[in-house]
């Protein structure tokens, strides 16, 4: 194991992960006045999370079918205003059940 190389690589990774997180928070403290930019930043969280979730959620489990079951469970629970943990564990549970059933059906 080449430890100096691994340490250097980990340090580089940590640095390029830290800089984008820290930079705007530290250096862009002024309140943005422009209405369009403010609106843009207001919508960013939803857009980022939507792009990260879809379509990846379908491929996050052993099969697309169980992924779909989990997705529908999550959508149903979230639509009824269930909390983060309930939705996460609820979809995990139905994925687990779906995969057991799929295994029984030998799909």
């Amino acid at each position: 194991m080449n430890y100096p190389r691994i340490f250097t690589a980990i340090f580089i990774m940590a640095l390029v992960t830290y800089i984008p997180r820290m930079f705007p928070l530290v250096f862009m403290k002024r309140k943005i006045q422009n209405r369009t930019i403010r609106s843009f930043l207001y919508y960013v969280p939803y857009a980022v999370l939507a792009a990260m979730t879809f379509p990846e959620i379908l491929f996050s489990t052993a099969s697309v079918i169980s992924g779909m079951v989990g997705l529908l469970t999550a959508l149903f629970l979230a639509y009824h205003n269930k909390g983060l943990l309930t939705v996460a564990l609820g979809s995990t549970f139905t994925v687990f059940c779906a995969e057991q059933i799929l295994k029984l059906l030998a799909l």
Binding site: P45, Y46, L49, A50, M52, T53, E56, I57, S60, T61, A62, S66, G67, G70, L71, T73, A74, L75, L77, A78, Y79, K82, G83, L84, T86, V87, A88, L89, G90, S91, T92, F93, V95, F96, E99, Q100, K103
Partner: peptide, 19 residues
């Protein structure tokens, strides 16, 4: 089987945040 099912947990959280 449990490892596979847990793969969806983080996306479930995302959905709970945006919906």
């Amino acid at each position: 089987a449990l490892q596979s099912a847990l793969g969806i947990a983080i996306y479930g959280m995302f959905i709970a945040i945006i919906i």
